[in-house]
């Protein structure tokens, strides 16, 4: 998208289209036409489409949260996750056969990661499900690389001055999963309890894991 000159020129609000729900009739017909022709040709089946939608619906950030919680309690798993996140996700039962390379980035007291896709909306869907609308918005994509601290503040995430913020830009071939820091006060917690502290945004980097009250 950044290689495209025209999309930089318009001035109207670019957020609304991302969030609007129903397509215009001509696009609804285009989808139906393409789908029915592909099915008639045997390229795909109606069942393939249904199963793919079921798979999409089954993918939620809860899977990512389970992976993060495992990494918090199992140092050997964390090492494997940071070395090859796809393989580690497979270990946890995620089908990553249609996924680009996924790189897990560990947040530390000295360094915080936040993920953006300036080109389009690349996201580790196999692990986190579909991206939130704001992740696909022009404003998030334009601003995160320019003023990450300010963007994080808008998300209610305030990092101490000394913490380095590293912004990583996703591509079609490489997606990122942020491993947030384990909150204090969770010593001895089991994985299920820990996973409940790991929200979607903490794995994108716009939030931290929830600190227990």
């Amino acid at each position: 998208m950044s290689g495209n000159h025209h999309d930089h020129l318009h001035t109207h609000d670019d957020h609304a289209p991302v969030g609007a729900t129903e397509p215009r009739p001509e696009y609804a017909r285009l989808e139906r036409a393409v789908r029915e022709l592909l099915i008639a040709k045997g390229v795909i089946t109606a069942d393939d489409v249904r199963k793919q939608i079921e798979l999409m619906d089954s993918r939620t950030p809860a899977m990512g949260a389970k992976i993060v919680a495992r990494a918090w309690v199992d140092p050997a798993f964390k090492t494997r996750l940071l070395k090859d996140a796809k393989a580690a996700a497979e270990e946890m039962g995620v089908d990553t056969s249609n996924s680009a390379t996924v790189v897990a980035l560990e947040n530390t007291p000295a360094r915080h990661h936040v993920v953006v896709c300036t080109l389009c909306s690349c996201y580790p869907k196999a692990i986190l499900g579909v991206p939130p609308a704001w992740y696909k918005s022009s404003a998030y994509r334009a601003r995160t690389v320019k003023e990450p601290r300010k963007v994080l503040a808008e998300f209610g995430t305030f990092l101490p001055e000394g913490v380095e913020i590293r912004v990583v830009d996703s591509t079609a071939d490489m997606r990122y999963l942020v491993v947030p820091m384990r909150p204090a006060g969770t010593e001895g917690w089991n994985e299920d309890r820990l996973a409940a502290l790991v929200g979607r945004d903490s794995m994108i980097g716009t939030a931290l894991a929830t600190t227990p009250a």
């Binding site: 930089h8 001035t11 334009a142």
Partner: peptide, 13 residues
Amino acid sequence: MGGIEPFASQPID
């Protein structure tokens, strides 16, 4: 899209 105006001055919905 990185840093590109006018998006870089817009609020995030």
